[in-house]
Amino acid sequence: MAAKEGKDYDMHIKLLMLGDTGVGKTCLLLRYAYDSFSPTFITTIGIDFKIKHVELDGLHVKLQIWDTAGQERFRTITVSYFKGAHGVALVYDVTDRDTFEAIRHWVKQIQEHAESNVSIVLIGNKCDKEQLRMVSRAEGEELAREINAPFFETSAKTNINVEDAFNKMAVMTKNSMMLQESTSRPSDGSLMVDDPNVRLTGSGKGGCC
């Protein structure tokens, strides 16, 4: 599809990476955006972002993905980015129970500071470290149901499910945005719109581990 008005994309979506420090937010993003991985990527201070262009249902979508520092002390700066986000990847580390327990806290933060219709995907990262696993897949799925979010277990290291998780988030967000647009501008209703509730029931197609 041709890009609109000289822009090289049809749709611009802002996504946000959230979760405790060290769960692998930056690594997931690097894997998704550049298909690269480093086990020791430098800690994120404040905020960073990456751009990824994808084709979704025939639309050229520009994803602007904001990566945040996970440490509590940086919340002052990171929280200001909640507002403009269309979708959130909420990440924990399957080998670190504390990061899983913190998800509910993050959900509260999202409810408090983000738009009410923001799409959320729950991601349990580092699923390649099966021998160190502290959070079962079933627990992750249960939490995902509780917060009405699709769920993926991923490994940025071995590239499991990373693309699926981000694409799911992108599609959900796109559809949600288009639904909003179509309800506000009925003439655009010709575009395909998925039921936004899909995110309430989906639990991720691709499992791993």
């Binding site: 060290g22 480093s38 086990p39 020791t40 990527f41 430098i42 800690t43 504390d98």
Partner: peptide
Amino acid sequence: TRLLRQILVDLPRTSPTVPLYQ
């Protein structure tokens, strides 16, 4: 313990491109 674990998580991520700090 939480504090120390936080530090331990960050040590490999301290100037990771400089071998000395690894």
